[in-house]
Design a protein around this nucleic acid. Structure first.
Lengths: 348, 348
DNA sequence: TTGTAAGCGTTATCAT
DNA sequence: ATGATAACGCTTACAA
């Protein structure tokens, strides 16, 4: 690999002139510029960015620390970050911690978790990234990031407890208001819930949205219509019987897997989803559109979360300020209305 | 951010001594080492890797160029690369070209495609990566990589036409032999095929496996039992009728979506999959296990492809040789036997 | 055991 | 318009 020095020598000019040509500074005659460009092409010279970065003391790169890339939400978030960064020519330095693979789904309770994050954060700073985006595998409080971190940092798909580290999250509450509102508009007034895990922030926010939607619809909130499951198909299957006992006309499942399980059970019982009963899911996973009937569900704004996270970091980098009041950005979901919701004619 | 110079000054030693401590060279008395370590800790000194890399002229990093991270195969491949690289402490520099997003699924026929790849390849070399792994979104001939590329390069999930650039691909043929063999063992002798696109390398290899399996099972190869579709659910739905007309007892669908569509149609017609007829898919997509009945399918070894690609590159880097004969590594698939295949009792 | 100094490949300042 | 040179933060002979 030739260096700038060799180009200079071959062209019989100084390195300064070559550098000027490469960086499109003026102060170079047309002839020398063209000669230099030609030689650069011939020798296939590639500037050494490592040297350049050292000299200029910036890398124009953003570190992205992902808990586990194989979790469904993360690639789309990274894609959004990439799109935003491309616009301003920032580079991404992606680190995939493989936490699920290493510690299964309780990784954030593992002792080594904090150590790994700190090590990777340190490494990223060693590499002179200018900002950092931490991507969680599901929304929860992310408090592993040191308070005194030296460079702008944001958390995507997770909350932080300080506004200096902004967080970009799903607007679960409003999305749920919309989804339940849709059921109410279709005449449903007795709406059961098969929730996710009780302590999940997603569960909490969606439950709040559920309550508010009922309130707006003048429907009494009935605690007994809520079951807590484990985000899986089996939970949906199991709790459907309880829903039926309570006599609900619609089931709000907090993800598409739960909804799929509910449909399985209803199908077994000969109850037609989208005709005899309404079922809605959440997340808009790939399988949601393949269920029979296709599920009405709420699409997660993963790409937009990434895009916003990139935007926030670039803002912090360039304006040296955090544009949000409280450091939390709620991103809108996209509803998918499909055939799993029936209309109930209201008798007057 | 303090530099090594400031640490040296604070400790009243030379930078050389600090450097020796950081890099665990000997030649330092216990006292000075501990003093230095303490100061490093206090001042939260982080070595500047950019400077280090410039000086040592290596970055211990591998560039990974992904066609589009949001395509289902790619995250797992990256995960495999990550796992392999972690073992030898190589860093990954990931570039997500977002080709699907930019040009839809005909991106590799687009004029800009080659330009983008060359630009990114150049950038990666600018950043002084020591090797490059190109990840294709689906298997095909990848001939955008310049012949005279200066650093070790491999292609994951795609073929190359020169063995200096090894490729790591799915062993589609043998996987299909195994899958069709499973049908034959279960007594099926009239096995229809709903294939993918006619010119896809996946289609070709799986078709060859199909032929060989029939040959081994002494079954005549009947061209009329093969339909070519478009990898989607609709193709499966549509061509199922033709399969039925031909009187097949089993349908080999070249991916799980096609299989899902076939199941839809069979269900409509009141034909029970896994009882009246056998259906197998391919890829082991998430939805395969949610079909009714769950699909027998062939799992793609995506993680292993990534792992192998990492392995190959690291070999090239360290042994300066390419360990394969012909530059192609075929990776084994993992079969998933589920309830969509019935046994046919053979009358003697 | 510790220090001095050259040099990695650039950019940028200041002369010429 | 062009060149000489210092400096970025580090490693590494080699000297002390």
């Amino acid at each position: 690999m030739p260096t700038i020095k060799e180009i200079a020598k071959t062209c019989k000019v100084s390195v300064a002139t070559v550098s000027n040509v490469i960086n499109h500074k003026g102060n170079v005659s047309k002839e020398t510029r063209e000669r230099i460009l030609q030689i650069i092409n011939e020798l296939e010279y590639t500037p050494n960015l490592v040297a350049k970065n050292l000299k200029t003391r910036n890398t124009r790169s953003i570190g992205v620390l992902a808990e586990d890339m194989t979790v469904f939400a993360i690639p789309d978030i990274i894609d959004g970050i990439t799109e935003r960064c491309e616009k301003d020519d920032y580079q991404i330095l992606l680190v995939n911690m493989r936490l699920y693979k290493k510690f299964a789904d309780s990784y954030y309770q593992n002792n080594d978790y904090k150590k790994i994050v700190h090590k990777e954060l340190k490494k990223l700073q060693s590499k002179q990234v200018e900002g950092i985006i931490y991507i969680a595998a599901h929304e929860r409080l992310i408090n592993v990031i040191p308070d005194d971190i030296k460079i702008p940092t944001a958390v995507a798909y997770g909350f932080t407890d300080k506004k200096e580290i902004p967080s970009i999250v799903v607007d679960d509450m409003n999305a749920t208001i919309q989804l339940i509102g849709h059921l109410i508009e279709n005449g449903h007034r007795k709406i059961g819930v098969i929730a996710g895990k009780k302590d999940s922030l997603h569960t909490l926010a969606r439950l709040e949205g559920y309550q508010r939607a009922l309130f707006e619809g003048n429907i009494l909130y009935d605690l007994s219509l809520i079951c807590y499951g484990d985000w899986d198909r089996q939970s949906g299957y199991k709790y459907t019987d309880i829903m039926l006992e309570k006599g609900v006309t619609a089931i709000f499942c907090m993800n598409d897997f739960i909804a799929g399980g509910a449909c399985d059970r209803l199908d077994e019982l000969g109850i037609k989803v989208g005709k005899d009963i309404a079922v809605v899911g959440y997340d808009n996973r790939e399988m949601a559109s393949y269920e029979k009937p296709p599920l009405t569900t709420m699409g997660l704004p993963l790409h937009d979360i990434g895009y916003c996270a990139g935007d926030v970091i670039i803002h912090m980098l360039e304006k040296k300020e955090n544009p949000s009041e409280n450091g939390i950005y709620y991103i809108n979901c996209i509803p998918y209305y499909r055939e799993s919701v029936n209309k109930i004619e209201i008798d007057v």
